[in-house]
Nucleic acid binder design. Structure first.
Lengths: 325, 325
DNA sequence: CTGAAAGCGCTTACAG
DNA sequence: CTGAAAGCGCTTACAG
């Protein structure tokens, strides 16, 4: 540390000054700070972290950033983390199981203080156990996996689709489809919400009305086309998520069907794009940005209290009605 | 290093084995590896980096992840980086100048080996100089700033809007608007392309036809509404980027104007969303994912050759015609 | 082919 | 109030 000799003190003193310790006389501190500035000293956080066995890096592993929902969640996480003087080690799995493992291991080597993970479809709960065995706090995002007791941030999926379906039913629709998604707890829960709304209104569940598809625009597009072939022809659909709904809107447009008038569509997530789609999309809003911030907040809390019980955030879904339904 | 004693060798030997050095006899190496496995040894990359003064972390600073263009670019960058065994330190500025400075400094403290930056509007070229003075390689993404000689990855903006405008003109449109964007080199270049296509066809440039607005869906929506008030009424518009175009589509829908038939719209970027918008959007495709990968590749190259001349990637724009124009 | 020693840039008891 | 020393987990000359 050149600063030490320049200020004519020991390394220890410099370190103490930089940490703002009150132990050092103000005069000395000032001299040190001046020297540090003059020499363009830059703090080496890695060395410090190594010595004190700490880290202010959080790993965030996302499966699909192409989905604006996750982009908004990520932004929320990152914002909160930066606020707390943490920094984000970000990685994208693209639904690739092997890659996910590699990425997780890499984050470990890099000494992430914690990991926020939205697991790839088909992730073994065993993997989560392993990560925790590493001794690094894990928060599962959105896609809950088995009934582990890990920290979790997501939304009340069943309630969300329940609200959407209920609304459609109240509008008088009787042939209501369910579009997109294919597997995983999120899908199961959202489908369950749909079914329970049906049941409550005593509308019979019809499996042909649920059109499974990849949870993206393309999937939504195709799913809606399928749905249109069902007889009697459905008049509404609730969607697995917003991008599926957006894809469905495209399909309706192509068929010359006016969304909102001739056919009602409701999405799920409350992604910003929905405010200015054609037409503006009704959706179940779970506030993706806030979800991200909450996830980060939970992780921060966990870091503070490594041994407290399971932490959880469940976004309360709100029906956001616009043109499409 | 417990592994050393467990395998009954010195730390040096362990280190060498882990690096796959051929110096160590296979028998010894095997013993060391076995011990490492047994003890669940995990390599401490930070310690290694500290010692050898290296880093395999790249900082990526993005201004607006809400724009799917940047999400796709980021995914491209990250993929390429991971492939090369680097890891991504990601940060989001949200167009906040102060935050951008803080983030950059933070990446420095964390010893990023390089920084890929899409600068906030209004960033002083001086900031870029400073980062380079830090001795950390900088690659500017998309938004070129002044005529510094920094490494750069972006697209040929002027040519892109030229192609789009030319196409619209060839279709017979004479009142062609330019929608969205408000400042910066990207805006200037794209507007210039528009103007030069006009000029080539000897169509008079009309300032009332360029409707500046924030480069997002909302901005596009409003810009199109403005454009519709111009007399004689325009019949087409080229947009600053895809999300502006998507917003414009929403406005057209609201007014009951059929995009592609009654009014032509062309976007810019080639974001995936455009394939399934309502209607599918014609756009100037600059392949965001490939752009991201190229940016990362350039950074990797720079790290290899710190002193080679300026590195640059300029995406070749391709007109991608779909329903909307 | 392997080990002992020094050192990366910090922090933190421990003395004084 | 300040300094000397040890140590975080590695790597890398340097010996042998």
């Amino acid at each position: 540390m050149d600063v030490a000799s320049a200020a004519d003190v020991s390394k220890s003193t410099v370190s103490l000054v930089l940490q703002g310790s009150p132990l050092i006389r103000e005069e000395t501190a000032a001299r040190v700070r001046a020297a540090a500035n003059r020499l363009g000293y830059v703090y080496n956080r890695r060395a410090a972290d190594l010595r004190r066995q700490s880290s202010n890096t959080i790993g965030v592993v996302i499966n699909d950033l192409m989905n604006p929902f996750f982009a908004e969640v990520l932004v929320g996480i990152e914002r909160k983390l930066v606020e707390a003087d943490y920094i984000t080690l970000m990685a994208h799995t693209g639904e690739d199981l092997e890659l996910q493992e590699k990425l997780l291991r890499s984050m470990r080597e890099h000494h992430a203080a914690g990991i926020i993970l939205c697991p790839v479809f088909g992730t073994s709960p065993w993997l989560l156990k392993e990560v925790r065995a590493w001794g690094i706090p894990l928060l599962v995002l959105v896609r809950s996996l088995g009934k582990g007791t890990y920290d979790y941030a997501g939304s009340d999926n069943e309630r969300g689709t329940f609200l959407a379906t209920q609304h459609l039913l109240a509008q008088g629709h009787r042939q209501v489809g369910f579009l997109g998604g294919q597997t995983g707890a999120v899908f199961d829960d959202r489908l369950r919400g749909y079914r329970s709304a049906l049941k409550k209104r005593r509308v019979k569940y019809n499996a042909r009305l649920v059109c499974s598809a990849k949870p993206d625009r393309q999937g939504g597009y195709q799913a809606l086309l399928h749905l249109l072939d069902v007889q009697p022809r459905p008049t509404a659909a609730v969607c697995y998520n917003d991008i599926v709904a957006l894809g469905a809107l495209a399909a309706l447009g192509e068929r010359g069907i006016a969304a909102g008038q001739d056919f009602a569509i409701i999405g799920f997530d409350g992604v910003q794009d929905t405010a200015h789609s054609n037409p503006p999309l009704s959706t179940v809003d779970i506030r993706p940005g806030a979800l991200g911030e909450s996830a980060a907040a939970l992780m921060l809390k966990r870091l503070q209290h490594p041994n407290s019980g399971q932490l959880q955030y469940l976004a309360e879904p709100k029906l956001l009605l616009r043109q499409s339904g």
